[in-house]
Simulated assay, not measured.
Amino acid sequence: MNNQIKSKPKQSSSSKSLYLLIYNATSFLLWSTVTLRAILLIPALASHNKLYGLYDALFQFLRVTQTVALLEVAHAALGLVRASPVTTAMQVASRIMLVWGVLTPFPQIVATTNAFGRTQQGTTGGPIALAGCHLAWGITEMIRYGFFVWKEGISDQVPSWLMWLRYNTFFVLYPIGISSECVLMYLALEPAQDGKTGYDWLLKAVLAIYVPGSYILYTHMMAQRRKILKGKSKAS
């Protein structure tokens, strides 16, 4: 009886680890596909002044990939991972807002389709900001999910190069991502105002909390970095 009781937590832990491994591996593959395609497309499109074509080429896949990340809020809330549900929700919400609340209803800020069905340049700066989101989000998530896959599926001892990427690249990628998101949200204000639904006030409210929200998330990541590096130095 005692042996059976003791085995239950082990089985539960094993099931949780397997689920998280599958989730992280799937997310890694999705983000790798988005990111590598963007890396190949962006220089080619930019060289022909057709960066607006990135929207038609990748946005639908980007939207699905980013929407999958909503599961991370559930993971934190259910205790499957050691992460704050509030911080996780803040990190996911801004991107969900951008793909579903900005780019889906207002694609004209990054690309437009004329009467002949041909994609044309959108609002000035929109395609560049979209490219910034693709690269900043994609590289960040490839590193993050790759880190988790290594820990869940290979070893708790993560290679030093992967550890360095996980806790240092955000210094550059996070500002690029945040600034790109703000640009796209700002560009969406005009078409939102044209709709006369008051939706532009929601976008303005989101923009207003971007500064304090970004500061909270950025300092949170820096605190995590200090904690990990401090623990690593003690272990060595």
Rank of each mutant, 00 (worst) to 15 (best):
G125F: 04
G125D: 03
G125L: 01
G125V: 08
G126A: 03
P127V: 09
P127I: 07
I128N: 07
I128T: 00
I128P: 00
I128E: 14
A129D: 01
A129L: 01
A129C: 07
A129N: 03
A129P: 02
L130T: 00
L130M: 10
L130I: 00
A131T: 13
A131K: 10
A131Y: 07
A131D: 06
A131R: 09
G132Q: 04
G132P: 10
G132C: 08
G132I: 05
G132F: 08
C133E: 05
C133L: 14
H134E: 12
H134S: 11
H134D: 08
L135R: 06
L135I: 13
A136N: 04
A136T: 14
W137E: 11
W137C: 02
W137Y: 13
G138F: 05
G138Q: 05
G138P: 01
I139D: 06
I139A: 09
I139C: 11
I139N: 02
I139R: 07
T140L: 05
E141F: 11
E141R: 04
M142A: 05
M142L: 13
M142D: 12
M142Y: 01
M142F: 05
M142P: 10
I143H: 03
I143Y: 03
R144L: 08
Y145D: 10
Y145S: 11
Y145A: 04
Y145Q: 09
G146R: 03
G146P: 05
G146S: 10
F147C: 09
F147N: 09
F147E: 04
F147A: 05
F148L: 12
F148A: 06
F148Y: 15
V149W: 04
V149I: 01
V149C: 14
W150H: 12
W150N: 02
K151C: 02
K151Y: 14
K151M: 12
K151A: 15
K151R: 15
E152S: 15
E152H: 15
E152I: 00
G153M: 09
G153N: 09
G153I: 00
G153T: 01
G153H: 07
G153S: 13
I154M: 10
I154Y: 14
I154E: 07
I154V: 10
S155Q: 08
S155C: 07
S155H: 06
S155D: 11
D156R: 12
D156Q: 14
Q157Y: 05
Q157C: 04
Q157P: 01
Q157S: 13
Q157H: 12
V158K: 06
V158F: 12
P159H: 06
P159I: 00
P159F: 02
S160T: 15
W161T: 08
W161V: 03
L162N: 03
L162D: 04
L162C: 11
L162S: 07
M163S: 15
M163A: 15
M163K: 08
M163E: 13
M163C: 09
W164N: 02
W164R: 08
L165A: 15
L165N: 09
L165Q: 10
L165H: 03
L165V: 00
L165K: 04
R166G: 09
R166H: 10
Y167P: 12
Y167M: 07
Y167K: 03
Y167F: 13
N168G: 14
T169H: 01
T169S: 14
T169L: 09
F170K: 02
F170W: 11
F170V: 04
F170I: 02
F170A: 08
F170S: 02
F170M: 05
F171R: 12
F171C: 09
F171T: 15
F171L: 14
F171A: 15
